[in-house]
Design a protein around this nucleic acid. Structure first.
Lengths: 208, 208
DNA sequence: ACCTGAACACCGTTCAAGT
DNA sequence: ACCTGAACACCGTTCAAGT
């Protein structure tokens, strides 16, 4: 949908159109020529507004980092509140896969997670951890959350597996445990797995 | 270093040169023209041997998957052996960052991890878990290992953080805990963090 | 201040032609 | 069976020129 010709092209117009392209089809779909076509202008006017492709992407990343912020923990115990933070983060991350991937690539994950990190510090403190030990717990949780979402995304994007998942697991291979073989042959229930793993880790770290 | 002109170019020559380029500078450094220059041939002879760029990368990925295999757990208890598997995997993954990233992108992580997965099943079984519960434990550990390495890589590749890490954390923000603030301001000790997090998770999952 | 087309140096890929 | 150069359709970017 080309933009109305009535008003002059603005930097915001360019950024919005670019964000749209990236959100829908990923950064590789953002070519300067496609973007120009989308906006109904010459390729070169884009350069006037945003410099070049790299700074354009950079700007989209900065926007995303700014947007990710509000964290409101819920639950009675510190452990429950930490788990609620972890779940909220996963949800937010999964809503913007392409943009988040770009934030990752540019090494701004840390900055993006600062608000959540502060909330985690608060909870870990409430659970009685202090100093270096508290810091390690916070980081272990952060790595877990981000790592899980990365792995999850990865699996979802993946094309058909070379050997289909089911073929890899037979009862013989699973030490004669057919139920185990069946469970490993099926795709994992990420929601449930995330909750189990998060709870296990948090409980172990907070020592409860 | 251009290859000797004495013998005919083989498919292996092409793959080796490509693997070198990718291992050193990442897949974006692999252009057909650079590769041809490296091999001292015309761009188009590469096509005769390997089809096109995509199948060339595909072949490198297949090689990498094949190479990652041998896992020999060590330790007395199942929990210790699981931790030893997790550590070995992290080491192997960190040795081939670019190639591993390509395996991830193509969704072959699962296949690559099958041998390790079988070892994990064995240990989880030895710890007394069965059926769906055992499967979930295995998967939680796998997600943890892969996720951790992904996050770690991510942080290492990252350029200078927009606000330097130290600036983000002051004692006020850390609930009046200077030691905590100091720990969060410094870059994490990944080795130690990995061990702590892995042990916490494994112990919680195996119920020991 | 904003927009334009032409031109440049790169890509991956195809193809007809050579040996 | 293997290799070649020419040509095509794409890129991002620069620049002098327009209004």
């Amino acid at each position: 949908m080309p933009r109305s010709q009535r008003t002059a092209l603005t930097r915001e117009d360019v950024l919005d159109a670019a964000a749209n392209l990236v959100a829908q089809h990923g950064p590789e779909a953002l070519t300067m020529r496609k973007l120009a076509a989308e906006l109904g202008t010459a390729v070169t006017s884009i350069y006037w507004h945003v410099g070049n492709r790299e700074t354009l992407l950079e700007e989209l990343v900065t926007r995303t980092v700014r947007e990710m912020g509000a964290i409101t923990p819920s639950g009675r115990t510190p452990a429950q509140r930490v788990v609620s933070i972890a779940r909220a983060q996963r949800r937010m991350l999964r809503e913007r896969p392409h943009l988040i991937a770009m934030v990752h690539e540019r090494g701004l994950t840390e900055l993006m997670f600062l608000p959540a990190q502060q909330a985690l510090v608060h909870e870990v403190h409430a659970a009685g951890l202090r100093g270096a030990r508290a810091a390690e717990a916070v980081r272990a949780i952060e790595f877990h959350v981000i790592g899980f979402v990365l792995v999850e995304r990865n699996r979802e994007r993946s094309p058909v597996q070379h050997p289909a998942e089911g073929d890899l697991w037979t009862a013989q291979r699973a030490d004669q445990d057919p139920a185990l073989a069946r469970a490993l042959a099926a795709p994992p229930n990420s929601e449930r797995l995330y909750l189990t793993a998060t709870r296990a880790l948090v409980n172990a770290l907070l020592g409860q």
